[in-house]
C-alpha cells in the first residue's frame, strides 16, 4: 500500500511541474466548455433553449470525444521522455523496480483518464447551475452513463497505446509520429476494406482500434432514439441507414486492446536494459 502512495506522489510531481501537462488540461477544458458556454448563453436569451442535465449530456460529452487523443499525447510526453532523459533508468537505480516504474505509469494513465472525465462532468454541472430552466428528473440516464463509459474506454485504449509506443520507441517524437501516422493509415485502410463491400473485411474494419474509439465516443452509438432519427432522415434522402456494432462488443474490444497494449508494455519494460 505504501508503494502505491509513493508511485502516486512521484507521478504527481512529474506531471504537475510539466508545462505541457497544464497546456493540455487547459486546452481540453476550454474545448469542452465552448459548446456548453454557448448553450448557457443561448438559454439566457431564449426561454425555449434550455441547458440542463440530464438532457444536455450529449452536448457536454460531444466535444469530449477528443479526450482519447489528448490522453495518448500526454502519456507519450510523460513516458517516452523518461527514457530520453534517462530518468527511468535513474528511478530504477534509486530503488524503483522496472515493474513498479511501469505500475506508476499505469496509475498515471488512470489519473489522466479520471481527470479528463471529471472535467466535462464538472463543466456540465456548472453549466446547469448557471443556466435558467429545469432539466428532467435525475442527474444521469443509463445512456448518458454509457456515453461517459465509452469515452473512458476510448481514453484507456489510446492512453495504453501511447504507453506502449513510448516504451517501445523511447522517443516522444517518434511515438507521436507513429501514433498520428497510424490513425491516418487506419482511416485509409478502413475505407478500402469497407469499399470492397465484403462482409468479413467490413467486420475487421469495424474492430480496428481507432474505429472502436471513434464509435465509443459517438452519441449515435449510445442514444438509439437519436440514431433512429438520423436514419429516418437518411432514408428520406435515399441513403443507407447507419449501423454500429453493439456497445457491449465495442467495450469488450476496447478492453481487449487496452489489456494487450498494457501487457506488451510490461513485457518490453522487463526485457530491455535501461
Amino acid at each position: 500500500m505504501k508503494i502505491l502512495r509513493v508511485l502516486l506522489r512521484i507521478e504527481w510531481l512529474k506531471a504537475v511541474r510539466r508545462r505541457a501537462f497544464w497546456v493540455a488540461v487547459a486546452a481540453f477544458t476550454a474545448f469542452t466548455s465552448l459548446p456548453v458556454i454557448e448553450r448557457v448563453r443561448g438559454a439566457h436569451s431564449n426561454p425555449n433553449a434550455v441547458f440542463a442535465l440530464p438532457e444536455s449530456w450529449p452536448v457536454v460529452l460531444g466535444t469530449a470525444g477528443i479526450g482519447p487523443l489528448f490522453i495518448a499525447a500526454l502519456m507519450i510526453l510523460l513516458v517516452a521522455q523518461e527514457f530520453s532523459w534517462r530518468t527511468a533508468r535513474q528511478n530504477v537505480i534509486d530503488g524503483l523496480s522496472k515493474e513498479r516504474f511501469y505500475a506508476g505509469k499505469v496509475m498515471l494513465l488512470a489519473g489522466l483518464v479520471l481527470l479528463f472525465t471529471s472535467a466535462p462532468v464538472l463543466i456540465g454541472v456548472g453549466g446547469t447551475m448557471l443556466s435558467p430552466g429545469e432539466g428532467g428528473p435525475g442527474f444521469i440516464r443509463a445512456s448518458d452513463f454509457g456515453y461517459i463509459s465509452g469515452l473512458v474506454l476510448g481514453m484507456l485504449l489510446f492512453g495504453s497505446a501511447g504507453l506502449m509506443l513510448s516504451v517501445h520507441l523511447r522517443s516522444s517524437g517518434a511515438s507521436l509520429g507513429i501514433l498520428f501516422l497510424y490513425l491516418f493509415v487506419e482511416e485509409g485502410v478502413a475505407m478500402l476494406m469497407l469499399g470492397t463491400g465484403r462482409e468479413s473485411l467490413r467486420n475487421v474494419a469495424e474492430f480496428l482500434p481507432f474505429n472502436v474509439v471513434e464509435d465509443l465516443g459517438d452519441d449515435l452509438v449510445h442514444y438509439p432514439d437519436v440514431l433512429a432519427e438520423v436514419n429516418a432522415e437518411r432514408a428520406e434522402a435515399g441513403l443507407a441507414p447507419l449501423e454500429f456494432l453493439d456497445v457491449e462488443m465495442l467495450a469488450v474490444a476496447a478492453l481487449a486492446y487496452t489489456a494487450f497494449f498494457l501487457g506488451l508494455s510490461l513485457l518490453n519494460m522487463r526485457r530491455r536494459d535501461l
Binding site: I10, L13, K14, W85, T87, R89, N91, D94, L96
Partner: peptide
C-alpha cells in the same frame, strides 16, 4: 550512471523530492 539523469524542467529540489520519494 553516465550523465546526471534528472528532469530538466524541474528544480534541483523537486528532482531530489522525486528521488527521495523513490
Amino acid at each position: 550512471l553516465e550523465t546526471p539523469n534528472f528532469y530538466p524542467y524541474m528544480s534541483g529540489r523537486d528532482n531530489l523530492r522525486v528521488a527521495a520519494a523513490v
